[in-house]
Amino acid sequence: MRNNPATIASAVFTYGFVGLMAFLSVFPFIWMVLGATNSSIDIIKGRLMPGEALATNIANFFTLVNVPLVFWNSAKVTIFATVLTLAVSSLAGYGFEIFRSRRRENLYRAMLLTLMIPFAALMIPLFIMMGKMGLINTHIAVVLPTIGSAFIVFYFRQSTKAFPSELRDAAKVDGLKEWQIFLYIYVPVMRSTYAAAFIIVFMTAWNNYLWPLIVLQSNETKTITLVISSLASAYYPDYGVVMVGTFLATLPTLTVFFFMQRQFVQGMLGSVK
C-alpha cells in the first residue's frame, strides 16, 4: 500500500507544491537581502549573487536620508500608538466584560459595527479636524485617531472571558480598589494577551502608510515607511538604496516575528475561536 505509484505521485505533488509555495514566499526576502549588496543596475537585471556594493548602498542611503531622525520618528509614533492603544483598549475590554450593563452592551455592539468603516471615508474629515486643531505635520495627528481601536477592545474583551473571577473576589476581600485590581492583578495575569495585542498594534503602527502620508508633509516628520515609498517612486530610483531602506524598515517587525512567533500567530488570529 505504502509504495504504490499513486501514493508516490501524491507525495511528489504535495512536497513539490508546498515547497514551491514556501520558496515563492521567501524569495522576495532573499532578493531584498542580495539586492542590498548589488548596484541598482544589477538589481534590476535580476542578479542573484552577493555583490560588492553594500557599503556604497549604505553610504548612499545615509546621505540621501537623515536615518537617525527618520527612525526616531517611526519609533516615536509606534511607541506612543502602542502604549496608548494597549492601555485604553485593555481598560475598555475589561470594563465591558466585568461590569455588565444593558446600555454598555448596546454601545459595545455599535462599536463593533465601526470595524466595517473604511478608512477612506474618514480621512477627509480627520484631515480637516487635524487642520483646525493645528496638528498637521505633527506626530500627535498620526497617533491620535489610531488609539481608539474597536478591534483591540474586542480582542481584550474576548480574552477577559478567561480571567478567573476568583482573583477579583479575593482582591476585593483584601480591600483593593477597582483600579488596583486592574493594575496589579489583571495586567500581570493577562501578559500573553498583552503580548499578542502588542504585536498587532506594533505592526499596524510601524507599517501605517496612508494616514501619515496625508498628515506628515515635511521631511523632518516623515517616518521610514514614507521615506521608502518616496525613494522608490523617484524617476530613476537607486534600487541599492531602496533595498537597504526596505531591509532596515522590515527589520523591527521581522525581529518581533522571530522572537515572539507564538504570540505573533496568536495576535494575527485575534480571538476567533
Partner: peptide, 9 residues
C-alpha cells in the same frame, strides 16, 4: 463600568 470604557468609547 463607565470609567473603564469611557476613554475608548
Amino acid at each position: 463600568g463607565w470609567l473603564f470604557v469611557a476613554p475608548a468609547l
